[in-house]
Simulated scan of single mutants.
Amino acid sequence: MQLDLTGRRALVTGGGSGIGLAIARALAAGGADVAVHYASSKDGAETLAKEILDSGRRAVALPGDLTAASDANAVVAGTVDALDGLDILVTNAGHLVGRSTVAQMSDEHWAKVMDVNVTTAFMTTRAAIPHLARSEAGRVVMMSSMAAENGGGNGSAGYAAAKAAVIGLARGLAKELAPDGVTVNAVAPGFIGQTAFHDTFTSPEARAGIVAGIPLGREGVPDDVAGVVAFLASSLSGFVTGQVIDINGGSQFR
Rank of each mutant, 00 (worst) to 15 (best):
D4I: 13
V12I: 09
G16W: 12
G16S: 11
S17R: 15
A28K: 07
G30I: 10
G31Y: 12
A32W: 12
A49K: 11
E51P: 04
S55R: 14
A61F: 12
L62Q: 03
P63Y: 03
P63R: 03
G64D: 10
D71N: 04
A72S: 14
A72G: 10
A74N: 04
A74V: 01
I88M: 03
G94C: 05
S100Q: 11
T101Q: 10
T101F: 08
W110Y: 03
D115F: 01
F122D: 00
F122G: 00
F122H: 01
P130W: 04
H131F: 14
A133D: 07
G138P: 00
R139P: 02
M142L: 10
M146C: 04
N154Y: 14
G155P: 05
A162W: 10
A170C: 10
K175R: 15
L177I: 14
L177V: 12
A178H: 12
A186P: 02
A188G: 10
Q194V: 08
A196F: 06
F197K: 07
H198L: 13
D199I: 05
T202Y: 04
S203L: 03
E205Q: 14
I214D: 11
E219W: 04
G220D: 08
G220M: 08
D224R: 12
V225G: 08
A226Y: 05
F231A: 06
G238M: 14
V240I: 15
T241H: 09
I245C: 12
D246Q: 15
R254H: 15
